[in-house]
């Protein structure tokens, strides 16, 4: 049983991220590096409600990751899902976060990555899936391929509003991580997105993003525009 060396149980759970909703552990499972995502119980919720929410969100996240992978978008492979325990075990992507890469790599290489991300999001949106937390921290580049991670807030949605929010969030994270190249990188993203959704799809999403940015919450942009 040589292939069972290392066991089929999780070993050496190493806590690598503490979020408000879930903890992420790095571990090994069937001899490969994995991420274990554990949704935490919340003492302030009715126990039944708590179980229901954690179970439903675990199932939704796993389903969406599986569906997105099926569409050909680079995402972590699922290894195991336990809805009752609110645990997802998935591939550990050995790479560098786009957020960190932006400050170190050649900008034209970053441009090609961002264009790939635009394509991936275009594919997801066309299939009625929104990511919900699309930032440069949630993209990991491994062997020249940008992987999209953390589908914790992803949803099935065909609303232009939800898709617009995805793009707005991505633009905002570009602005905060690398303000000097925002225009170039956002153009590259939109180019990739347009390859999938076409020029009409592109126009309507850009219009939506502008509208979202003009709303009260983002008054900074509105003020600048008036000046």
């Amino acid at each position: 049983m040589a292939f069972r060396r290392g066991g089929d149980t999780l070993e050496k759970l190493e806590l690598i991220y503490k979020g408000a909703e879930a903890y992420l552990f790095k571990s090994t499972f069937l001899d490969t590096d994995v991420i274990v995502k554990y949704r935490l119980p919340k003492p302030y919720r009715d126990p039944l409600l708590d179980r229901r929410i954690r179970r439903d969100r675990t199932i939704l996240e796993a389903r969406i990751i599986a569906r997105v992978k099926e569409l050909g978008v680079p995402v972590p492979t699922l290894y195991m899902v336990d809805p009752e325990k609110a645990i997802i075990i998935m591939e550990y992507i050995h790479g560098i976060r786009l957020k960190e890469l932006i400050n170190h790599a050649n900008i034209s290489i970053i441009e090609t990555y961002v264009r790939e991300v635009g394509k991936s999001i275009g594919i997801m949106h066309s299939a009625g899936i929104v990511h919900g937390d699309l930032t440069t921290s949630n993209i990991i580049v491994k062997e020249d391929t940008p992987y999209i991670i953390d589908f914790g807030l992803a949803q099935y949605s065909d609303e232009l509003e939800d898709k617009g929010v995805d793009i707005h969030l991505f633009l905002r994270s570009l602005e905060s991580t690398h303000p000097r190249f925002v225009d170039r990188l956002f153009k590259a993203f939109i180019k990739g997105y347009e390859e999938i959704v076409g020029s009409r799809g592109k126009e309507s999403i850009l219009k939506k993003v502008r509208e979202i940015r003009m709303r009260g919450r983002y008054v900074e942009e509105r003020r600048l525009r008036k000046q």
């Binding site: 979020g19 408000a20 909703e21 919340k42 302030y44 919720r45 009715d46 409600l49």
Partner: peptide, 16 residues
Amino acid sequence: EIAYSMVVEVSERALA
């Protein structure tokens, strides 16, 4: 239960 928990959950995210 649901309404209050929703508000507490988003507040928790802001706090974290």
